[in-house]
């Protein structure tokens, strides 16, 4: 074979092998690390997988925050005003965490329907609402509205 063609062939082969390895590794890594979002209604309906790292979000229910007196463990309910899910977290909550505010929690659902969070994210400022939370609230509100036969409510009461 012509030396230049041979060189080109080597380069092409090298690239093909490299790209396939990269794609395989990436797909594998992606599969391990995709965190799907579930809203409280979906979790209550049992749609969320147990013991898989997922994200859950909604509003922190009023008067639902309970602190453990000895440690940094805290419990609260996250709601989309249709259903709510009990979240357990140990650590420091973000500055803007408060009852009646939107949050997104990262963690796993245990067998008892409790969501054990390893990370809690709250909004950055007054005007910000996590888009997932916004959507979940709207969905729940729409569902309630259509169930009661009433008018469609586009944004939940916040």
């Amino acid at each position: 074979m012509h030396p230049i063609r041979k060189k080109r062939l080597t380069i092409v082969l090298f690239l093909v092998v490299g790209v396939s390895v990269a794609v395989a590794l990436t797909t594998y890594a992606l599969r391990q690390n995709i965190n799907l979002f579930y809203d409280p209604s979906q979790i209550a309906a049992g749609e969320a997988p147990v013991d898989v790292r997922i994200r859950a979000g909604g509003m922190v229910e009023e008067d639902s925050v309970i602190r453990d007196p000895e440690s940094l463990m805290v419990e609260f309910k996250v709601t989309d005003f249709s259903s709510s899910v009990l979240v357990e977290y140990t650590g420091i909550l973000p500055d803007l965490f408060a009852e009646g505010q939107g949050v997104v929690a990262m963690g796993r659902l245990n067998g008892q329907g409790r969501f054990v969070a390893d990370q809690v994210l709250a909004k950055h400022d007054e005007n910000y609402m996590p888009p997932e939370v916004n959507e979940a609230l709207e969905k729940a509100a729409n569902k309630r509205a259509s169930e009661s036969g009433g008018q469609l409510e586009t944004s939940a009461g916040y």
Partner: peptide
């Protein structure tokens, strides 16, 4: 809706 975590 999904997010890709730091581990990826």
């Amino acid at each position: 809706r999904l997010s890709i975590g730091e581990p990826f």
